[in-house]
């Protein structure tokens, strides 16, 4: 609620087209610490996300009866999806080894993303570069280490000298492949998630806050005030859209991590 309050105080709703904070960083960077510790709001939310993931799994898998409860059945379908469709489905039978990692990133990113549309939180921790960058680097380390461990030097050789393309094309394709594998992959993985969540948070904040402020002050600005309803309605539509984006981006990050690991486990494909 902090950015919303700031925007209400600062917004010159009579003259400005939208109620945006003076610095866009105000939507993302929280420097106030909580309870006199170095914990900022973002750090608190990162911890909360971890706690929620652990709680979901804890309550999903304690006291298992032969017939699971509705919540347990839902958790079964989530974990079963990551295990059977992503880990085993993409990587193959040995994908089971990577299931703990894939399940961890999926649930952690999913909860972090859904914070964007969680009332009273309204802030996706994945819109802070720290989380996507760190997880992308972990995926990067896993697929590079697995690639070399499974295939030795041939892993690198097959990338820079791809034997499946004509000889004349090999140097060019090799350079493209090398850059794609070792530079673009981790970067695009991190930026895709980060940018989606930043864009979603900016859109929701601006539309809902502007709509709210315009409608509240409709007495002073009749025309803008009536437009405020449209902004607010559009904001609610995007709110629903962002729920889908949150799930989709968590899935894409997990899926691409599995695909990258798969290319290291079976480099010939």
């Amino acid at each position: 609620m902090e950015p919303l309050i700031l925007a209400v105080e600062e917004c010159d709703f009579v003259n400005e087209p939208v109620c945006a904070p003076g610095d866009v960083a105000e939507l993302f960077v929280f420097t106030d610490t909580l309870w006199g510790t170095p914990i900022t709001r973002t750090i608190f939310l990162i911890g909360l996300a971890a706690l929620i993931v652990i709680a979901l799994l804890y309550f999903g898998y304690r006291n298992r009866q032969p017939v699971p409860t509705k919540f347990q059945a839902m958790m079964d379908s989530v974990t079963g999806f990551v295990r059977d469709e992503v880990a085993i489905g993409i990587i193959g039978p040995e994908g089971v080894k990577y299931f703990p990692y894939l399940l961890s990133i999926f649930l952690f990113i999913l909860v972090g993303n859904l914070f964007e549309v969680t009332p009273l939180i309204n802030f996706p921790i994945t819109s802070r570069m720290a989380i996507p960058a760190f997880l992308a680097i972990v995926t990067y380390l896993i697929f590079v280490i697995v690639g070399f461990a499974k295939n030795g030097f041939r892993y690198l050789a097959d990338i820079v000298w791809p034997r499946s393309v004509p000889v004349a094309m090999r140097p060019l394709v090799g350079i493209i492949e090398f850059v794609s594998y070792f530079a673009i992959r981790p970067f695009s993985l991190a930026v895709r998630l980060f940018a989606n969540m930043v864009a979603g948070h900016v859109m929701l904040s601006l539309l809902l806050v502007t709509g709210f402020i315009f409608v509240v002050n409709i007495g002073e600005i009749p025309l803008k005030g009536s437009f405020g309803f449209a902004w607010f309605a559009l904001g609610l539509g995007i709110f629903l859209f962002e729920i889908m984006v949150a799930v989709l981006q968590a899935y894409i990050f997990t899926l691409l991590s599995a695909v990258y690991i798969q290319t290291s486990v079976h480099p010939e494909h």
Binding site: T40, T42, I46, G47, R128, M129, A133, F134
Partner: peptide
């Protein structure tokens, strides 16, 4: 906005 903050990186 673009660069990871150290404290958040450690927390993450």
């Amino acid at each position: 906005i673009l660069l990871p903050a150290t404290s958040e990186l450690i927390a993450g």
